[in-house]
Design a protein around this nucleic acid. Sequence first.
DNA 1: TAAAACTAGTTTGTATTGCAAACCTGTTTT
DNA 2: AAAACAGGTTTGCAATACAAACTAGTTTTA
Lengths: 107, 107
Amino acid sequence: MTRPNPDPRSILDLDRMVHEPARLAILTVLAAAEEVAFLFLQKVTGLSKGNLSSHTQKLEAAGFLETVKAFQGRIPSTTFRITEEGRAALQAYHRQLRALLPKEGKP
Amino acid sequence: MTRPNPDPRSILDLDRMVHEPARLAILTVLAAAEEVAFLFLQKVTGLSKGNLSSHTQKLEAAGFLETVKAFQGRIPSTTFRITEEGRAALQAYHRQLRALLPKEGKP
DNA sequence: TAAAACTAGTTTGTATTGCAAACCTGTTTT
DNA sequence: AAAACAGGTTTGCAATACAAACTAGTTTTA
């Protein structure tokens, strides 16, 4: 065996701020783009407005994204950017997941 | 690009019965062994007894494991076995995770 | 042999959370 | 001017994870 089985305890260490599917979806989108508008984010994730609003607030409180409020003409527009800390957290989370996935093509 | 970026909506489809870290840890241990005793499971996962008890009950209600209550001499002993359905759910979950992980060694 | 301490788990209580309905503020349409 | 709409936020609620407290029985101690 080249890789030891994952320590089950390490599974409990998964970063819950990232692990929550709604927030993982948000971070995944943000990580792929420079800046993302609220409504676009809502469309691609499928989250309700309320749900999206509260999760982005949590991610902001965690320092994983920043919110930019502006006006496009006279209509308000909220956009988000992932922070370096957020990107690092997402990458760390990906590493944690890889560590716990069995090798592909296992019987 | 050989693989498209994960659809953020699919992240929301992650099976929450498996996604919860405590239960993922439990299933991961059960998948690696024929049969696992309550106390052993508690030790390797690091979960409290109460927490382990309630999560195994949920997994049983979901049909992902079965509970066997027996006596070793005169002391009671509860052991668990993953079901075929549970194993399938865990494998499906692994596939979902792989689908959303970026290719390794990405810049 | 009675009491105290331990074992193996379950139930109860609580604080947190994810979620959408209802709401709010302003803009555009009728 | 009123009604409808847009872009979000706040509120209320049901579900959840978690450990403290409890239960039922066993072993040890006095």
